[in-house]
């Protein structure tokens, strides 16, 4: 009773989740590029691509439900299916955040967002998610702990960037009297702050992926809290 088809279905789920993760990372990559280089066409491509990500997410979620209902996985198989189910949600949310970032690239004047630190944060968040997905695919528990630590650094960089943006606003625009100018400044600052927030969230979802991966490989819930 080796249940070959069942084992093959588990492997297929692992491969498909990782593939969806890769495609979402590509979406994120294009968004960051669009932000940095103010490329509207690339940003539009990201927004259009989100529907396909959502469809595949729903298909893989259904595959997890089928595995649970039809195969009743237990032990490490159960942890794998349940973790994959949760990780899928994180991947899909990263896809949504990539879409948000693409939206900021379209709606904001490129200069407003041209902050080198921001692109560095974006790259760090992207790499964190990439490493979390690699840990999931290979079952690397040690990597999960390192990923969680890296998120602390991203969080403080986001915090510092937000403070600087607000400080700049106060310093540069405090004396502004033209209401249109004030309005434009507020829009720009809002977009930058939302960008920072979304990049931070991208990294948070990467940590969630690492946390679920640690649970599935070691039955260790340490990073879930």
């Amino acid at each position: 009773m080796a249940r070959h088809e069942y084992q093959a279905a588990l492997e297929e789920l692992r491969t498909d989740v990782a593939a969806l993760g890769d495609d979402v990372l590509a979406q994120l990559d294009r968004s960051l590029h669009a932000l940095e280089h103010d490329e509207t066409a690339a940003a539009n491509g990201v927004i259009e691509g989100d529907a396909e990500i959502n469809d595949r997410y729903l298909e893989l979620e259904a595959a997890c439900i089928d595995l649970i209902a039809l195969q009743q996985p237990v032990a490490s198989d159960l942890r794998f299916v349940v973790a994959s189910f949760k990780i899928l949600t994180d991947i899909e949310r990263i896809g949504d955040l990539a879409t948000n970032l693409a939206g900021y690239a379209i709606g904001t004047d490129g200069e407003a967002i041209a902050d080198v630190t921001l692109f560095e944060i974006g790259a760090a968040a992207h790499d964190l998610v990439e490493d979390a997905l690699a840990a999931y695919e290979t079952g690397d528990a040690d990597a999960c702990h390192r990923i969680a630590e890296r998120d602390d650094e991203i969080d403080s960089r986001c915090h510092r960037a937000s403070e600087r943006v607000v400080r700049d606003l106060i310093e540069q625009e405090a004396g502004a009297v033209d209401p249109w100018e004030v309005e434009a400044a507020i829009d720009d600052v809002s977009s930058v702050l939302l960008t920072i927030r979304d990049l931070e969230r991208v990294a948070d979802h990467g940590v969630n992926i690492a946390a679920r991966t640690l649970y599935l490989t070691e039955n260790d819930p340490a990073l879930l809290y």
Binding site: A2, Y6, Q7, A75
Partner: peptide
């Protein structure tokens, strides 16, 4: 059923033998 200590128990309950 969630985290057996023994590899053989893991293999048995996940249907890899038996």
């Amino acid at each position: 059923f969630e985290n057996p200590q023994s590899q053989r128990v893991e293999e048995y309950i996940t249907g890899k033998f038996g």
